[in-house]
Write a protein that binds this DNA or RNA. Sequence first.
DNA 1: ATAATATTGAGAATGATTATCATTTTCTAT
DNA 2: ATAGAAAATGATAATCATTCTCAATATTAT
Lengths: 156, 156
Amino acid sequence: MREEKEIFGKYLSRHNFRDTPQRELILDVFLKSKEHISAEELYDIVKKLDPSIGQATVYRMLKLLAEAGLAREVDFGDCVKRYEYNYNQPHHDHLICRGCGKTVEVVDDVIEEMQKRVAEKFGFELTDHAMYLYGLCENCRKKRTNKFVLTTYFVF
Amino acid sequence: MREEKEIFGKYLSRHNFRDTPQRELILDVFLKSKEHISAEELYDIVKKLDPSIGQATVYRMLKLLAEAGLAREVDFGDCVKRYEYNYNQPHHDHLICRGCGKTVEVVDDVIEEMQKRVAEKFGFELTDHAMYLYGLCENCRKKRTNKFVLTTYFVF
DNA sequence: ATAATATTGAGAATGATTATCATTTTCTAT
DNA sequence: ATAGAAAATGATAATCATTCTCAATATTAT
Ligand SMILES: [Mn+2]
Ligand SMILES: [Mn+2]
Ligand SMILES: [Zn+2]
Ligand SMILES: [Zn+2]
């Protein structure tokens, strides 16, 4: 909390950007927010605390946070940019349930290593990657099965 | 070519969809097109052959092709849906150059296997995944290096 | 305090995609 | 071949997240 604000403060002065109450408020809310928040979701919280804040400011701020290394952008496949806390966090990928949207953060060293090798095999130097594993969580699998049983039961 | 048209014809009749000259033309063009084509790009080609065709029809047709299993949707991270030929094709992922956009189709059995295991470890049944490896191709790395050398030369 | 510069909020604009709807086309049963 | 039901089409409007524009305001270094 304290440390992140310092990091961001340094980022601002390093770029001759200015410290404003809007930026401070948005940073506070972001740091307290749950993971994978979208600009709209963040804006909804922020405007309750200060209705005068415009949504463009929230969009702009999230971009700054990503540039400052405090946030990472993710996209679970719906083309809505979501942001997660990224300061001193180890890299991870995501496992997402197609049924309920539940996400799990995962990382596998073998996969990470093989990705690098695959890239090198084709003369590429890997800079980054996007990996999203989609599936059905335990709960959603149960529901799916029940529905199927029910349907066939009625049909025949 | 012949086979794909048959597949699509069966798909149409199975769903009580109709065979139209627009659909035939768009299918023809899609089958001849280069990989990873967007709706707009396909529309640009199609409208030269038949200027009366609307772009909505092209969008609708690509959705049908994906449903019929003839096309697969991909998104290289810019939130533009692209479609690639998918009939009897083995699964593959993509390696994309951040410098020039060049793509390479890749697949790694170890990665595929580990993805399944990671999902299972968290109680998920994997249905599909999106994996995009981003990097710099050999050419772009050379350019990048040259630019860097030049810059530092001038700065110091 | 001042001037230079950055930031803000409102609203317009964007760009890819989808929805709407009146008109036209296809298919199927006569 | 023909009529009638159903589906498809093309033009256009709508959507949605995001970015842009710009006049008004705030911050910062002097
Ligand atoms: Mn995450
Ligand atoms: Mn491909
Ligand atoms: Zn679930
Ligand atoms: Zn390249």
